[in-house]
């Protein structure tokens, strides 16, 4: 991934710019919501993390297909690099959702479709991280992890459509809708700025983590060779 060095600084700069603009709009240039008041400002960190929690899993599912069909080692690297980030984004979505729920719904948590399926997503991420640690070096470990990743992908449409299929405390989709967002531009602006900021941050971290994972494999291979050469000398 020698090309990655050309992406890292531009991605970092773009992400930092979007974060600076997003924070400024979120706190100094956007109104309080007519119903939720200032708690709407939690949405500017909640929605980007919720979006990434699902998008990262989508990327892992695509990588899993690449691993199973083409047996491409970069697909394994991509899956392994993305899993801890997906877990972190999902944890932040759950945490901010709980803090947003208390003043608006009167409760931190409710076992409704959206929240429960997102919690399941978090547990799937933790399970996949554990599997990578346990099975990575076994012959068919990455293939097995790819299969488990694809099975877990069933949960993504469940999260997306849970607010339509079941009666939930969580509001229905208000940004990604066929007929367009239902929010005013003054609230959409900081929301999109923060979504771009977190998405570019993920692209940056994924590039860095994939490069590091390739180096880790190179180190492991060199250490094995060094030991083998030492044994035969």
């Amino acid at each position: 991934m020698a090309w990655s060095r050309f992406f890292i600084w531009p991605l970092a700069a773009i992400s930092a710019l979007f974060f600076a603009l997003g924070v400024w709009f979120a706190f100094f240039n956007s109104p309080a919501d007519y119903q939720m008041g200032d708690t709407v400002r939690i949405m500017y960190v909640h929605v980007p993390n919720a979006w990434l929690s699902q998008m990262v899993y989508g990327l892992m599912a695509v990588s899993a297909v690449g691993s199973l069909v083409w047996r491409h080692p970069m697909a394994d690297v991509s899956m392994k690099a993305a899993a801890p980030q997906g877990a972190a984004f999902t944890a932040m979505a759950l945490f901010t959702g709980a803090l947003w729920g208390r003043p608006t719904w009167g409760t931190f948590w409710e076992w409704d479709g959206r929240m429960t399926s997102t919690l399941i997503l978090f547990l799937i991420y933790l399970g996949l991280i554990a599997l990578w640690r346990a099975l990575e070096h076994q012959a068919n470990g990455p293939r097995l992890i790819a299969i488990v990743t694809l099975v877990g992908a069933v949960n993504i449409p469940i999260i997306k459509f849970s607010v339509d299929w079941w009666n939930t405390l969580h509001q229905p989709a208000s940004v990604f809708r066929a007929d367009g967002p239902t929010m005013p531009g003054s609230i959409l602006m900081p929301l999109f700025l923060m979504m771009f900021a977190f998405t570019f941050l993920f692209a940056l971290l994924q590039t860095l983590r994939m490069r590091t994972e390739i180096e880790r494999r190179r180190v492991r291979s060199l250490e094995r060779r060094h030991v083998a050469e030492g044994a035969t000398a």
Binding site: I42, A88, A91, F95, L99, R102, P103, L201
Partner: peptide, 23 residues
């Protein structure tokens, strides 16, 4: 930030900590 400032500050602080930790 109004009467629910602690929730807003808590959410943003938590996200900042986790994001910085990840970086």
């Amino acid at each position: 930030l109004g009467q629910h400032a602690q929730y807003i500050v808590g959410a943003w602080s938590g996200v900042t900590l986790v994001t910085l930790g990840l970086i």
